[in-house]
């Protein structure tokens, strides 16, 4: 008689290596894309620290800018920038696959879906840069 088990019965299963994603570029790309989220979270932490300094007043805010001048923080931010831009490109290139829009029985070309995303990115970046660079 079959007894109840919490997990499905164990058949023969090939144990995959923990490093399965290192062998092929598409797998590595997938994993790098997933890891980009860690750098997204790092940016949020930096932003929260900056808001905290802003609450402390002008002196605290100016003093806090030294944190960003620390060479280790700059190095980390350069790496983070690489990963976040990688996220942006992979995210927009994924959009046509997630939204398969059909018009007149034909699929709308990928570029018509990812294109507006890239245009929005340029506009948003320009507006934010303008706001922050005024003085």
């Amino acid at each position: 008689m079959a007894t109840y088990t919490e997990y499905p019965p164990k058949g023969y299963r090939v144990r995959m290596s923990t490093y399965w994603w290192l062998g092929k570029w598409p797998y590595l790309k997938f994993t790098l894309r997933e890891i980009s989220s860690v750098f997204v979270a790092w940016f949020v932490i930096e932003t929260l620290l900056q808001i905290n300094a802003l609450i402390g007043g002008p002196a605290a805010y100016t003093e806090f800018q030294d944190f960003f001048r620390n060479p280790l923080v700059i190095a980390l931010n350069v790496i983070s920038l690489f990963f976040v831009v990688f996220h942006t490109f992979t995210w927009f290139n994924l959009a046509p696959k997630a939204m398969a829009v059909r018009m007149g029985g034909k699929r709308v070309p990928n570029i018509l879906i990812s294109g507006p995303n890239y245009a929005a990115w340029v506009v948003v970046s320009a507006v934010l840069a303008w706001l922050l660079l005024r003085g």
């Binding site: 997204v40 940016f43 932003t47 350069v78 995210w91 990115w121 934010l128 660079l133």
Partner: peptide, 23 residues
């Protein structure tokens, strides 16, 4: 994250601390 983070990370994390642009 895709739309808003890259420019802010570039400015606050790289361009301002290195003195490329005035913060």
């Amino acid at each position: 994250a895709a739309l808003f983070i890259p420019i802010q990370l570039f400015l606050f994390g790289v361009a301002f601390p290195l003195g490329w642009l005035n913060g």
